[in-house]
Each structure stands twice: as C-alpha cells, then as structure tokens.
Amino acid sequence: MIYSVATGFVLWILFPIWYTLSSSFTKPSKIGIHPTPFWPENPTLNNYRIVLGIPVHGKNCVPGIDIKLCETAQSNVSVNKIVETMLHSFYVGALVVIFTLIISTIAAYSLSRYRFIGSNFFLNFTILSRIVPGLVLVAPIFIFLRVLNLLNTPWALIISYTSFTLPLAIIILKNYFDQISIDLEEAAALDGASRMQTLNLIILPVAVPGLIATGVLVFLESWSEFFFALVLTDSYTVPPLLAGFLSMQTFNWTLLSAATVIAIIPPVLLTMIFQKFIVTALASGTGK
C-alpha cells in the first residue's frame, strides 16, 4: 500500500522531467512518434552539441531531414547563447548573494540583538514586504532604472533582485542569530571587542550554516527570476532566453529541452548539496 502511493509520487514528480530529459536526447525527426515513446530511439547528443555551440560533425547530418540541424550548428546564434547567458546568470546571482548577505547580516544582527526605536516596526515591515510581490512594483522600478539609464545592464537585475531577496534573508538570518547564545558575545565584549569585531570574529563563524542556506536561497531566487529579467533586460539571464526559444521562427523542442536540462543543472545541484541547510532555514524563516 505505502509503496504504491510512494510509486505514484515518484511518477508524478519524475514524469514531466523525464520527458524533457528524454526529448533532449531525441533526434528532431523522431519527436512526433505516436504513442510517444518513454525512451528515445537512437539517442543522440547532437541537441546538446548545438546548444553548447559545438559543431556537429558532417556525417551526422542526414541531408533532407536533419539539414536544419547542420545549419543551426554554425549560424543560429540565439540558440547557442546558453553558455554565455548562464555565465551572466552566475555573475548576477553571485553579486546579489554578496550584497544581500552583507546588508542582511548587519540588519539581522542588529534586529536580533538591539531593541531600538522602530525596531519592531522595521521587523514587521520586513515581513510584510516579503508579501508584496514584484509584479506590483515593476513599473516604478522600470521607470527608476530608465531614468538612471541602467535598463538592460546587469545592474538593473542586481539592484532589483537584491531589494527583493533582502527581506527573506533578513528574516532567516535574524532567526538564526536569535538561536546563538549571547554568552559568547558577552565574553568577547569583556575582552574588549567592539560590536563589529564581535560580529566578525564570534558570530559569523558560528552562523556559517545559516549564511550558506541564505546564500543558496538568494542565488536560486535570482537564478529563477523571470519577470524582471524579461522586462528590464534583453534576455540577459537564462529564463528569458529560454522563453525566447518559444517564439523563435525555427522552433525546436529537442533543442529547447537540451537547453532546459542544462539550465536546471546548477540549481538542482545546489539544492541537492545544501538540502539540509535550506529546508531548516526555510522552515524557520517562514515559521514566524
């Protein structure tokens, strides 16, 4: 009984992904077979080669059916932009993570340790702003960036993503700092350490798991974000590039599936590796 339910879940989770994976190994000419096969017939790596910009060898190009395949290898630039775009995504993600972590560590630490005027308001406001979605804010941000002439630069994304990920990061880190015993700090203070020194030398090393989890979550968010990347830049990061595939003249699902598989490898790896940290952080971060 329990195994049949479990199998059901596995199928429910895996089927869509499996189809994408198997399509990415299928030859474009074999894609329309009915009933749709579970397993690609004569699997090929050509889709990946094209998407990654590796030239397809002449003997693989069957004239007639695969002629498009041969041409796209050299000429179609938008298809094999995936590598470059992923580097952009990494760049944006890394900077967003750095900025968010610096700002949110200081903010979360002060929220966790001090009671200043308006600290409660600030905390509640942070939680509330997590609920206000980006969709509602896009027009003013768009206009700001336009006035500042930052549209279609990585900074457009870095600035807007940082402002969106900050609340989440602050909440998670505050909860994390709350759990760290205050004794350590008092000892440090007795030894004459300043607040910033305490934060740097005592708290940060202890808080590494929390920082990792927050960093990974922030990175995932900036990797996945589509709407802002779509309207603020010209396909600078991965999601809008993939969306651009959909409206291409010579649309090709096998190529798109290969690109999709490549695009989800980094987030999947990250979550697999840091799963424990992330789930704990999420559960605590949203638990308030």
Partner: peptide, 18 residues
C-alpha cells in the same frame, strides 16, 4: 527537491511540452 529547484518558467516549459 527536484521540482522545487526548477525555476517557475522552466516548470512552465517542461509542462507545456509534457
């Protein structure tokens, strides 16, 4: 974790073709 690691847009793409 697998579906959760997929960006929303990619969820859409995967399901559109599925």
């Amino acid at each position: 974790v697998l579906p959760w690691a997929c960006p929303w847009l990619i969820v859409g793409i995967i399901w559109k073709w599925f």
